[in-house]
Computed example of a mutant assay.
Amino acid sequence: MTSTPSSPPRGRRVALSLTTLVTALVVGLPGTVHAEPGDDEVDIDELNQRAEELEETYDGELLQFTEIKERVEKAEEDLAKIEERLDASRTGVSAIASTRYKSGGLDPALQVVFSSDPEDMFADAAALSYLGQSQSEQISELIETRDEAALVAEELQDEKTEAEELIEKLESEREEVEARIEEYEEEQIPETAGDGTIPASAKGWGWSGASPRMAAIRDEIVMKFGAPYPVGCLRNSADDHGVGNACDFMMSSGGAIPSSTNQALGTQIAQYGINNADRLGIKYIIWEQQIWQSTSRQWTWMNDRGSTTQNHYDHVHISSY
């Protein structure tokens, strides 16, 4: 006759429960979430190389990619810090279980908790006043840190996916955009109102350095809407301002938030640029922390750059082909 194994003695059951706890703490929680990209993961460095190959065709769109890349890098930094906290918290909670076991075994009520599924175990154990406030707080912190790590990891993957989709879209539309650029280059530049009809108060830094097309766009807007503050164009920078293909239509000075009247004026100028983008050869417009691109035909939010001017709340930026 075969015999069935008897139930292990209580001490054995306690040891097994402790093993369950430690395994859940060390293995069940996320470890290094941002490992090297696998076959199904997005490699942001590889996308950056592809973006560099598109630089001659795109400007505003690559600005959008750069912003996504900045958010990816920030999420990676945040995740690394969270994982350090997670490791420290895991060590502390493991010590709770070890100390309680060595001091005389686990209470039967606690044994039941530690023997349950890891998710239920954490939730139940954190609620047990039996453990004492300090130990409960340590377990609660472990749960919260684990959940925070999972959330940041998910946000990181979403950002990488958005970057990949943007690059794939730009690559698919590259020939069409290059044809449009060639068409604008061959087309006659719109007539400009000329210096004689533009008030001196509208002429800001780099006024005379604007390219012929950008000068025509600028003068048409100034003649139609006026200029409450000087309009700046050419400056020493790596963007479109550096080659005279962009102007800033200021709605205030000194980094101040524009008045309600000038805020409405800035919105009118931005909308006028959108309505006449194809005729004038406008490439993109930035206003109030959003960018409108002639390719996508929609406003997209930009990263917070920390000031009214850098976030384009005090001026409308218009770039031309």
Rank of each mutant, 00 (worst) to 15 (best):
D240V: 00
Y284Q: 02
V72E: 13
G104H: 07
T57K: 04
S259F: 11
I198T: 02
S17A: 15
T57D: 05
D195E: 15
H317M: 01
E77M: 09
R297T: 05
A193I: 05
S17Y: 09
Y101A: 08
S319P: 08
M214C: 09
D45K: 12
S319H: 04
T23C: 05
L234W: 08
E53D: 10
Q289L: 08
R90T: 14
S89L: 03
R218V: 09
T4C: 07
E41W: 10
Q111I: 00
S103C: 03
L86C: 08
A200I: 09
L170E: 08
M302W: 09
D78M: 14
Y284D: 04
E175S: 12
T192D: 14
R180Y: 09
R146N: 10
V152E: 12
M1L: 12
T19M: 11
K169E: 14
A35S: 14
K160A: 11
E137Y: 05
T99S: 07
A210H: 08
S129A: 13
T2N: 05
I274E: 10
E154C: 05
S320Y: 05
T2G: 00
K69F: 09
T309A: 14
V112G: 12
G255D: 04
S260C: 02
Y101S: 08
A126C: 03
I143A: 07
A15Q: 13
P190Y: 06
M1T: 10
H317F: 00
I269P: 06
Q188L: 13
K283P: 00
S140W: 09
I217F: 06
E164Y: 03
S3P: 07
S296G: 07
I257V: 13
E186K: 13
S201A: 15
S115L: 04
P230N: 03
G38H: 04
I139Q: 04
N262L: 04
W292D: 06
T309K: 01
R85W: 13
L156F: 06
E154S: 15
T19I: 12
D219I: 01
A163Y: 04
E176A: 14
S253C: 05
I282S: 01
P212W: 01
K74D: 13
I82P: 07
S320G: 15
G226W: 11
E187H: 03
Q290H: 14
R13M: 10
V152R: 13
A256Y: 04
E187G: 10
S307F: 04
T300V: 11
L79Y: 08
D87L: 15
V112K: 11
E288C: 09
E162D: 15
I291F: 03
Q268N: 11
E178V: 03
K69R: 13
S237W: 06
L62V: 06
R180C: 00
L151C: 01
Q49W: 07
V22H: 15
T309W: 07
A149G: 05
N275S: 04
I139C: 02
Y284R: 04
A80D: 14
P230V: 02
E288I: 00
N48E: 15
L151Y: 12
C247Y: 10
V93K: 04
S134Q: 13
D147V: 01
R218G: 05
C247R: 02
I44N: 08
Y272T: 00
A127Y: 03
D87G: 10
W287R: 00
C247E: 06
G273E: 12
T145D: 09
A193P: 02
P212L: 06
S7K: 12
W299T: 00
V93M: 05
E183I: 00
L265Y: 09
A88N: 13
N245A: 10
R235I: 06
I221R: 01
K69C: 08
